[in-house]
Amino acid sequence: MNTYTKKIRELASNLLKEGKVDLVIGFKEGTVPMATAPGIARTPEEADGFVWDANCSLNLTNYLTNKKEKIGIIAKGCDSRSIVNHIIENKISRDQLHIIGVPCTGMVDKNKIRGLFEDEITEFKEEGDVIRVKTGAKELTIDKQEYLRGNCRTCMHRNPVIHDDLVAEPVVEQKLADPFKDVKAIEAMDADEKWNHFENLLSGCIRCYACRNACPLCYCPTCFVDEANPQWVGKGQDPTDIRTFHFLRAYHCAGRCTDCGACEDACPMDIKVRDFTRKLVKDSFEIYGWEAGLTLDQRPPLDTFKPEDPDDFIK
């Protein structure tokens, strides 16, 4: 058992024992290799089911929306920023939460690892920075840092920004020469190339809405794509409707997206939907100097007005 798992179980179990929270939300072991299942513990014994590894990639903040109980929650850097968002947007109050922070060294890109093999993965073992992956035919030892998810590779906040406990000493934050290389690559294209890039990106979309539903920001009681009166978007497989869904969903996350990557993790078709939201992360940073979810004291730029807000787009 790794030290993170041990510490998470210990902290969660104590919280429940001392009655400080009603339940703890964390990750439990999955039933297939490279899967973890979000789960709850209501008793100290149940807390023994919690695990931690590089597959705990979903964002548990998703489970906090409008909850009434007192909750313990496990949070990586990005998740902690989503929790800040949730508090600012009044979806949960700070007093209801006991945040068990996890200094994170990144989550792995499962599809990239699967791509290394012809057959299916039967075993995944993480040992520090090295991962051993086995299939029926072969076994490979890979460097975890080489197989991180896209958002983990450009992450600047691996340590939780808000927490009541930490499961380990903070990790060293990454220094990146250019965190927005991916966005700039798309920006450099001409209009038609951009259009085709996204057309190709979305070509496999089945509109299961896993990206939306895995997103902690998408908590609207009725999403605009589901609205029937008036109906904003067609519900079939027309590419225009698919594009409209992705574009507008992304825009609703402007200034709020912490680039936690849950959308891409959840996508069954391996669509890199962050190509939309990353642009908004970059613009928020460059236009307003804003990174979402770093502080409880400031409202996100798109829900406030300041006379000094840049307005050079108005002609």
């Binding site: 979000p38 089945i206 299961c208 896993a210 539903n213 895995a214 067609g234």
Partner: peptide, 28 residues
């Protein structure tokens, strides 16, 4: 209750399922 806790209510399971046959009708 516990089984459903983690469900995010996406349609992945139903769409990848070979036997899920439900449909919705839309006019355009």
């Amino acid at each position: 209750e516990d089984t459903a806790f983690s469900c995010i209510n996406c349609g992945t399971c139903t769409f990848v399922c070979p036997t899920c046959w439900c449909f919705d009708i839309q006019d355009e």
